[in-house]
């Protein structure tokens, strides 16, 4: 009941602020910008032009209709009973895993993804965006010239690597701090050991339970 009311409130808020439409319009702009930056996408999506892909994001309770037409992607919130050439339904994490088109059939087999209609459309979108390759130095060169663009790109790359390294160092420091110094979390090995002991204890309890039952029956 509370969940129902919560859902109603959420839907009223969505209808008032039209958040899903607003978010989709932003995503549409970003994707269309990507189409401009990587012209090879236009060729990859040509085969699915005017075909409608319906994506249901289960954990967001949203359905999105995607159509590629006139060298642009059009994203809309799908209304009830919207017809589509292909429909996929999954949680957001599963949908993100579709960046690898080979995962599609595996996810269907694992019941993590429902697919109806033309599988080729979903695969085409998945493979187009997984191979997204934007030539950033070239895009930057339009504004600052070739040499500075290349330099800037290299600097940004090294900055990205450094930040990755710093993040992994910070992570390991934090882990050792929590496990060894502050002792507020346990080591994964300790958890494994605890689980093993737990399982042994569980089987012992089950054995005792059986013996008690047998004794009760004998009495």
């Amino acid at each position: 009941m509370a969940l129902e009311e919560n859902n109603k409130e959420q839907s009223a808020a969505n209808s008032f602020f039209m958040l899903p439409s607003f978010v989709l319009s932003l995503i549409e702009q970003v994707l269309n910008q990507a189409l401009k930056l990587d012209p090879s996408l236009v060729d990859k999506l040509k085969e699915v032009e005017h075909q409608r892909l319906l994506v249901e994001v289960r954990d967001w309770q949203q359905k999105i209709a995607i159509t590629y037409a006139n060298q642009q992607l059009h994203l809309y919130t799908a209304v009830e009973h919207a017809d589509a050439d292909c429909m996929i339904s999954a949680n957001i994490n599963t949908l993100l895993a579709l960046k690898n088109p080979a995962m599609l059939t595996q996810l269907i087999r694992q019941d993590k993804l429902d697919l109806q209609g033309d599988l080729n459309i979903a695969q085409r979108y998945s493979s187009a965006f997984s191979s997204l390759d934007i030539d950033w130095p070239e895009q930057l060169a339009k504004y600052v010239g070739d040499a500075p663009a290349q330099q800037l790109y290299l600097h940004l790359q090294s900055l990205q690597q450094q930040s990755k390294k710093a993040k992994s160092q910070l992570d390991s420091t934090l882990i050792s701090l929590c496990q060894d110094e502050l002792a507020i979390t346990i080591h994964p090995l300790e958890l494994v050991q605890f689980k093993q002991q737990n399982r042994a204890l569980k089987s012992q309890v089950a054995a005792i339970e059986q013996r008690i039952n047998a004794l009760i029956k004998a009495l």
């Binding site: 039209m18 439409s21 209709a65 809309y76 919130t77 799908a78």
Partner: peptide
């Protein structure tokens, strides 16, 4: 613009 998007949807 959002009202019109909803119309198209």
């Amino acid at each position: 613009r959002l009202w019109k998007r909803q119309t198209i949807a």
